[in-house]
Design a protein around this nucleic acid. Structure first.
Length: 287
DNA sequence: ACCCAGGGTCGTC
DNA sequence: GACGACCCTGGG
């Protein structure tokens, strides 16, 4: 664990607030100086902007430049993506403008699976609290600038938690789902590697949905936020709301089926549906 | 005080 | 394929 620094210049489409506050991640918090600090993998990272420079600092067990390039999806040209999406229609153009600094993070697969199982019928402040308590109890402590941080526990560490332990941390009815999913990985009924390597989105989705607590929506979020599958279109209450308001105008939005929304998204947004979803979600939820 | 909704999933009919 | 139950908490 060494303290490292990496400075990125001339990076377009990179706004801290947009990236960390658009609902894709749960472990980043804003500091008083407007920078953000988060725990990723086995380290702590702080990110700040100084004019056009983006400054990454932290303690990591791997090279900070490599970590950032992967985690912040720096190889992807978001200017191109935003251009394409903006040309689809005026609504999306506005959403893209609102969330112009968004990047889809490539987050740790294990942590993303558990985090989104916890997200089911839950709200973001509570989700963050639960993940924080899980990390504090079962993760490893890291000190960075005199503050304590806790890594998200790997499956072996989390496997030490009983259903009751999880209930005590406030997971509610999601306790058994997290417990059973962890058990499936520990017993090698499914492996992270086979999920990472599965190229076929449909098959990947099926494999993810074999996990307790992973339905369609959670599977899509995992694929989008950990496996860079930009074509999937997670349908939650917010996306259903905004899609209905923009294109369908049904009186009762809950009557609009998920299949219909996904078909519509596929027609309109094609292989960039996941990104479109994120811009729409972010604007509708915040504005 | 009371009610409602929240990045849904699951079991049952 | 539709429908209700489900832990818990912040905000109206």
């Amino acid at each position: 664990m060494t303290e490292q620094k990496y400075i990125l210049e001339n990076c377009k489409s990179f706004e801290l607030k947009d990236i960390f506050d658009c609902g894709q991640c749960f472990r980043w918090n804003e500091e008083e100086d407007k920078s953000y600090t988060g725990v990723i993998k086995n380290g702590v990272l702080n990110v700040r902007k100084d004019k056009e420079k983006i400054i990454f600092e932290g303690v990591l067990d791997k090279n900070i430049k490599d970590v950032c390039e992967s985690y912040f999806d720096l190889e992807t040209n978001y200017e191109d993506i935003k251009e394409k999406l903006s040309n689809i229609d005026e609504y999306l153009k506005q959403s893209v403008e609102y969330g112009k600094g968004i990047r889809i993070l490539k987050q740790d697969l294990w942590e993303t699976i558990i985090s989104f199982i916890i997200s089911a019928n839950n709200n973001i402040p509570r989700i963050k609290g639960i993940i924080e308590r899980i990390s504090k109890k079962y993760g490893n402590k890291i000190i960075y600038k005199d503050k304590e941080y806790y890594t998200f526990p790997d499956m072996h560490a989390l496997g030490k938690a009983s259903v009751q332990n999880l209930r005590d941390l406030g997971l509610g009815f999601r306790d058994k789902r997290v417990y059973d999913t962890t058990k499936m990985f520990l017993e090698n009924e499914i492996t992270l590697q086979e999920l990472e390597e599965e190229k076929d989105v449909k098959l990947l989705r099926e494999k993810l949905m074999s996990l307790p607590g992973v339905g369609e929506k959670v599977a899509d979020c995992i694929m989008l936020f950990a496996l860079k599958k930009f074509s999937v279109f997670p349908v939650d209450v917010w996306v259903r709301r905004v899609m209905n308001e923009l294109y369908i105008k049904e009186e009762d939005e809950t009557k609009v089926s998920k299949e219909f929304l996904q078909q519509l998204a596929k027609e309109k947004y094609k292989d960039l549906a996941g990104l479109a979803q994120q811009y729409l979600f972010y604007q509708r939820r915040n504005a």
